[in-house]
Design a protein around this nucleic acid. Structure first.
Lengths: 188, 188
DNA sequence: GCAAAATTTGAATGGTCATTCAACTTTTTT
DNA sequence: AAAAAAGTTGAATGACCATTCAAATTTTGC
């Protein structure tokens, strides 16, 4: 029980950051706005995270952890490279990830990452992980796995961008579309 | 000749804005930094554009105008829906558009647009234009044009995101990849 | 060449914001 | 229940920034 309150606040504030960025945008967000989301003060946020920059890092880490968890869950029941590829794609559009707020925040982080070392580092790690999984799945499936991987990743990123723009299709529909896209990409 | 200096400065400052955003990011940019790019003062920028917000609007408009011009040029020699579709796709990766700095700025504007009415308006107009062109080309080509259009647009957006991340493939290569992607999407 | 219009900027102005800190309250430990 | 530790915040602090403005310089129209 030693760390209960600390952990609760930590989670609350990361969630508040996602909602606040979704509402106001990364460029215009302030600690006061984030605090208002859960009735905390700006000073309190600094007490827990040390700086705004570290809070953003923790928030991005949370999104990546969700993606990773969704991927592992789906991998558990996937047999063969084709099923593992579908697991990777479907994880990207998992119900817990593919929400309007989180799509929005994800795109904001993509835009901000090149200028924030903490975010850039996390992004690099994630991209490398996804790339290597996709490659491993695709090598035994298609003659030009690298080209297919790039196209697939571009498609998935593009769907996130579209979702952040407004017309959100819903996670289940996004998964279905992505699956049929993958099938077409692999040559039916 | 009445408007020469005004027009020159206007163009210089919009170009400076692209470079400055590429270097520092939309979230951290200041008028002073943009001015430094061409040896102008922050006050001077306000004299020409009235506000930072309007400068950003003019900058986005410049990117959209480039896209539009590239599209029209390529349309001029395109006969039939299939050629017009390739023109639309290739225009997206035109040499004058698909540079590291402009990819970077484009993604930043995607992220910022939902929170800046001026940018949102321009974005909406552009997306509607591209959507309608793509639809018109695809209807006679595939049984499910709407699905193909969404996939194609997601792919193109995703390539821009990837380019903004760092690994830039170069415009010519991007066009070649996009063309072969389109071919595969339409069923070889 | 000269007056008027356009351009340019240094120096205010007013506002915002992250961060710090001292004081206060709540929770935990013993 | 007292002391210690953890949590909380209002009010500084210091920095930064868009915007304004008056004064200076340059360009243009004649």
């Amino acid at each position: 029980m030693r760390k209960r309150i600390r952990d609760i606040r930590h989670d609350e504030l990361v969630e508040a950051t996602i909602q606040a960025i979704h509402k106001t945008g990364y460029a215009g967000i302030t600690l006061a706005m984030i605090g208002d989301e859960v009735g905390a003060s700006a000073a309190s946020i600094n007490y827990y995270f040390g700086s705004k920059e570290k809070l953003m890092g923790a928030t991005m880490q949370r999104l990546l952890a969700l993606l990773h968890a969704a991927h592992l869950e789906r991998l558990a029941t996937a047999e063969g490279p084709r099923a593992r590829l579908d697991a990777l794609v479907a994880a990207n559009f998992d119900d817990r990830l593919f929400t309007p707020a989180q799509c929005s925040v994800w795109v904001q982080f993509w835009a901000a990452a090149p200028y924030a070392p903490d975010l850039a580092r996390l992004q690099r790690i994630n991209r490398a992980r996804v790339r290597s999984h996709a490659r491993a799945c695709l090598v035994p499936l298609v003659p030009q796995p690298e080209e297919a991987r790039r196209a697939l990743q571009a498609y998935m990123d593009g769907v996130w961008v579209a979702a952040a723009q407004g017309g959100a299709p819903g996670a289940a529909e996004a998964r279905a579309k992505a699956t049929s896209f993958t099938a077409r990409l692999l040559g039916d």
